[in-house]
């Protein structure tokens, strides 16, 4: 824009103008609904969550015990050989503390999210979940944690059948 122009015609649009409908806008809410087929491996995994168990798949070629379970080994590129269970305990691989809610507002009680390497699964494999029953400042790398399950009658075959993982005290299993 030229420096010679001191005043521009018209008036500045304010947020209030948009809200008041003074600027032509087309509002549209997409109709987008899906029902994702969980598939052979994840269906079994979700079913087992109802039983309070965590399912893993086994590749005998690379020897990995994989969580989340899958029907194929992505490294060896072959169908998996077997399914097994891993424990609902493990250690924190990495974590973050979220002070911002999904709508970008600031929250008082932060959410601790962590990747947990489950006992019995191959190193670096496990579950992404929330951490509870601990002040966020106390969370440490490698900290031992255990799943806190919903009561059996409330479980619905979803990842939220585990409420969160809580810290294990020394010597606790």
């Amino acid at each position: 824009m030229s420096e010679k122009i001191k005043e521009y015609p018209g008036h500045r649009i304010k947020t209030a103008d948009l809200r008041a409908g003074l600027v032509p806008l087309i509002r549209y809410k997409p109709e987008a609904k899906f029902a994702f087929s969980a598939g052979a491996a994840m269906s079994r995994f979700l079913e087992e969550l109802k039983n309070g168990r965590i399912l893993a798949s086994v590749c005998k070629k690379c020897g990995r015990i994989m969580v989340p379970p899958r029907t194929f080994c992505e490294i060896c590129f072959k169908p998996v050989d077997d399914y097994t269970y891993v424990k609902d305990t493990g250690k924190i691989n990495t974590y973050s503390v979220s002070f911002i809610a999904a709508d970008a507002s600031r929250v008082k009680e932060p959410t601790i999210v962590a990747v947990i390497e489950l006992d019995g699964a191959s190193p670096g494999m496990g579950i992404l979940h929330k951490i509870g029953e601990i002040d966020w400042k106390e969370v440490k790398f490698g900290m031992r944690v255990k799943a806190v399950w919903k009561p059996p009658e409330q479980r619905e075959g979803a990842i939220t059948d585990i409420k969160y993982f809580k810290p294990l005290k020394e010597g606790e299993e």
């Binding site: 997409p30 987008a32 609904k33 029902a35 994702f36 087929s37």
Partner: peptide, 22 residues
């Protein structure tokens, strides 16, 4: 995986011009 889509028409509609056609 079309059978996973519950609102097929809604998705196709989303490809239409939002001001002139939708």
């Amino acid at each position: 995986k079309a059978s996973d889509i519950l609102t097929y028409e809604g998705i196709v509609n989303f490809a239409f011009d939002p001001i002139f056609n939708r």
